[in-house]
């Protein structure tokens, strides 16, 4: 299926596009060059500082940070997908005692900052129950409370986009709610919403960095602690490494989702 936002360009427009592309590249390259020169003069690319990235202990710490981030992200993604689907189904239910609370829940939680929810769990659970919740679980639960509502909205959009006739044909055959979901609706809704779900998962992975606020040693906090330990002059290389690691993780996630969507689509 092709979606065209613009018309296919004619010869004049093609020449114009080529000219603008070449012409547009020049100021961009110029900006990059200027930025590099300025930062270089400010000493950001001093070789000795960047050599710190060769230290094994730093690299091991950063890798542990990656592991911690991935662990938090994985748990959050799986749990928020599950609860998100349940919430979506609750919101679409015909029974008012289910869909009204579900709607209130979703609309309240979507209005709250994730960090607030993480703090609320981290400080509130011990205060209310005396149970000292770990930073990991405070982070995961806090994030899931918010993310499940995002996933719920994504699922709900997918269900609304599914042609009504598919569900009617299933019901007309005698298929009940659970089987209709399993055999007719979800197999069509999930591939449809997969791109949105993936972008949510990428966001969740980055949101896990909020854990540093409550002391969960994810990748970001590891980076900060490393700089405190090694010295402020190493801020640039360490943060650059942290950023590169985040980008790699997110790229791999996107890769994974493309692979999954191909498998589901077949």
């Amino acid at each position: 299926m092709t979606t065209t936002l613009f018309e296919i360009p004619g010869p004049r427009e093609r020449r114009s596009i080529r000219a603008w592309t070449a012409g547009g590249a020049v100021p961009i390259i110029a900006l990059v060059v200027v930025a590099v020169v300025v930062l270089k003069d400010a000493g950001l690319f001093a070789g000795d500082d960047w050599a710190v990235l060769g230290r094994t202990d730093l690299l091991m710490a950063l890798l542990r940070g990656v592991g911690a981030t991935l662990k938090a992200a994985a748990f959050t993604v799986v749990l928020s997908l599950m609860f998100g689907l349940l919430l979506a189904l609750g919101r679409m239910s015909q029974q008012r005692w289910i869909n009204v609370p579900a709607r209130i829940w979703v609309e309240t939680l979507r209005g709250l900052p994730e960090l607030l929810l993480v703090f609320f769990i981290y400080l509130g659970v011990p205060a209310a129950t005396g149970f000292n919740i770990s930073t990991f679980w405070a982070l995961v639960v806090g994030l899931v409370l918010y993310e499940s509502t995002s996933m719920a909205e994504v699922f709900r959009g997918g269900f609304l986009a599914l042609p009504r006739g598919q569900t009617e044909a299933a019901h007309a055959m005698g298929l009940r709610t659970v089987k209709t979901l399993r055999f007719v609706q979800l197999p069509q809704v999930v591939p449809q919403v997969l791109p949105s779900l993936v972008s949510e998962m990428v966001r969740v992975t980055k949101a896990s960095s909020l854990g540093f606020v409550i002391g969960y040693t994810d990748l970001l906090l590891t980076g900060e602690l490393a700089i405190e330990y090694l010295g402020g002059e190493y801020a640039a290389p360490v943060f650059a490494a942290v950023a590169a690691l985040y980008v790699v993780i997110c790229l791999l996630l996107t890769r994974l989702s493309h692979y999954l969507s191909e498998r589901l689509g077949s």
Binding site: P163, Q166, A169, G174, L175, R176
Partner: peptide, 18 residues
């Protein structure tokens, strides 16, 4: 559901499971 399984329906838009 049981009754519907004994009543067959054919729709204008076919509604085959895509």
């Amino acid at each position: 559901a049981r009754l519907r399984s004994e009543v067959g329906m054919v729709f204008q838009q076919f509604n085959l499971f895509a």
